[in-house]
Write a protein that binds this DNA or RNA. Structure first.
Lengths: 336, 336
DNA sequence: CTGAAAGCGCTAACAG
DNA sequence: CTGTTAGCGCTTTCAG
């Protein structure tokens, strides 16, 4: 597994290895003929630049760290896909780390990434407390938070208007005549999730609806968690005292659908359901989940942009970008 | 963004920086008191080891490259999740690259990774031709192929027994009395897919069924592609002349479900459907896709194992590991 | 047990 | 236009 280095090609080219470096890096201070000769030669010799050596001297790796809960969560994997896409065209590669939505794990992972000298980090934090844990390293590596709303924290983040999102959902439900609406899967450890709950609550006030919550004590969403919580809910009541459910995420909603199915309840006949995120699978037939869309591609683009700005100009300050959600009407909601 | 180096802590500790290195790396040849003092100090000073510098001297990065089609494809994101998990406990981080199932892109990506000096690469190749493209770099970086069956190629790979998989599906369909079964989404550029088609064909011979194929000219599977092809199929015929469809992947099957839905056909009433992969969403209620499971976690574990073996002992040779598929019976199939 | 020094592969002044 | 040289931050002989 011996690799050919710049010195090797310098030797056979009969030039100093600085010359080879110049030829390959496209430096202007070199003769065209020598350049061509060296480029050709290095190709023949199978030379591949060693970017770790390069990184050491230029003090930049052109790598972004991406830390998120779990890459197999559809929301996260879509964000990851777009982040990779945008990062790549800007010349950056991605180091992927799953935090498992666990604070210790997340912190360790983060530290690892700064040790690896990544030029910047994009993180979908597991919750509010992520910030406190990561704080010590924050001035060592430019970081952009995605999805979690950090309120007025002096850190750059991009998120969707979660409050408005659930508000939109509620308006839609209200327009359909619903008066008994349950918020499903409220999570305390995340401001994003609190905002979703608040949007719901505010809408309740506005429409004279009594707010009702089913909380999730898990640190992340998944079909399974949603299913578990929904089963408990359905079992405890015997019947559902609501005409509609607003779920905190699409995956949770998928879990609800599964539980409802087992209980022989149909959607939207027995109750209307609305999700949040608009993951790919929500658009499946039979599922057809009405939901609030987060502009994932745009969010990823913004995050990459912000990060690169921060890297090129560390004095750029911070910015908060709250993107516009939109209602995707499918067929999981019906008039009462 | 100034980072504290080993020299900085050496200076304030009043020792040579070699000593600091020893203290931190857990070398035995150092006094316990000095070690503790230095560890404490380096913590206080907020020292983080620079792993790119370390990599340069130890000639190893502890990074694996992971190249796959698209991380937002559920099959791939699950593999990625497990690969990350297993790699991490072994001390490796992951560099994630989407190839977009495009050969040029894939090759470029691959070269990039070897330039980054990753210790090894795990690749879900976009097809048979991936090998030829990657070949030149193969003896430079240990590589494991995942999912694609490379037959008797002298390269390590782990895949599922695709032939047996579709065979199992066919046996099941046959036991249900089906005699007119269509294979949907055959792809020529991939041996894995050819094997699936062969398993189907062989089963047809065995059961006296006339094989029929609908080919996919796309380089990858997705709900959308499946939907497009299915729409074309349904439209052209007016009616489906088969009692069952065997889809090449679950995402393709999902596309079929969508198209069927639009055409007012129900599954399994109008035709039975069986997928391949067993992605998460196939288990959703309403979807309930009967499918062939690939043991994704185990495959990832094996891939990581193989790779580490190859890294620690380059003379280890190569190995082919063909995992056992299993039939997951849900409710998309019914007796004729 | 600890320090000095070489060097990993490359870039970037600085000379010429 | 090209060569020489000094590091980037760290590990690892080799002395002491």
């Amino acid at each position: 597994m011996k690799k050919v280095t710049i010195k090797d090609v310098a030797k056979v080219a009969g030039v100093s290895y600085a010359t080879v470096s110049r030829a390959l890096s496209g430096s202007p201070e070199i003769g065209e003929e020598t350049r061509q000769r060296i480029i050709k030669l290095s190709k023949e010799m199978g030379y591949t630049p060693n970017s770790v050596a390069r990184s050491l001297v230029v003090q930049s790796t052109n790598i972004f760290g991406l830390v998120l809960g779990r890459i197999n969560n559809p929301f996260m994997s879509e964000i990851a896909f777009y982040v990779e896409k945008h990062a790549r065209v800007r010349g950056y590669n991605l180091m992927l780390c799953n935090s498992g939505s666990d604070l210790d794990h997340e912190e360790e992972t983060y530290r690892l990434l700064v040790g690896r000298q990544v030029d910047g980090i994009i993180i979908i934090p597991s919750g509010v407390h992520s910030y406190e844990r990561i704080k010590p390293y924050l001035d060592t590596t430019p970081t952009i938070f995605v999805s979690e709303n950090l309120r007025d924290l002096r850190q750059s983040y991009v998120t969707v208007d979660n409050y408005k999102g659930t508000m939109m959902g509620m308006e839609y439900l209200h327009s359909l005549g619903h008066k008994k609406i349950l918020y499903f899967g409220r999570r305390m450890g995340s401001i994003t999730h609190q905002l979703r709950a608040q949007g719901y609550e505010e809408a309740c006030n506005k429409f004279g609806i009594t707010p009702a919550f089913v909380d999730s004590h898990y640190t992340h969403s998944s079909i399974k968690k949603g299913y578990l919580i929904a089963m408990e809910l359905f079992q405890s009541q015997g019947h559902l005292g609501y005409t509609a459910i607003m779920a905190s995420t699409d995956t949770m909603a998928l879990g609800i659908i599964k539980a409802a199915d087992e209980f022989g309840m149909s959607i939207p006949e027995d109750f209307s359901l609305i999700g949040f995120d608009n993951i790919n699978f929500s658009g499946l037939p039979k599922i057809n989940l009405t939901t609030i869309e987060q502009p994932k591609n745009a969010m990823a683009a913004v995050a990459v942009d912000m990060l690169i700005n921060k890297i090129t100009d560390p004095a750029v300050g911070y910015s908060h970008r709250i993107m516009e959600p939109s209602l995707i009407v499918r067929s999981s909601c019906a008039p009462v």
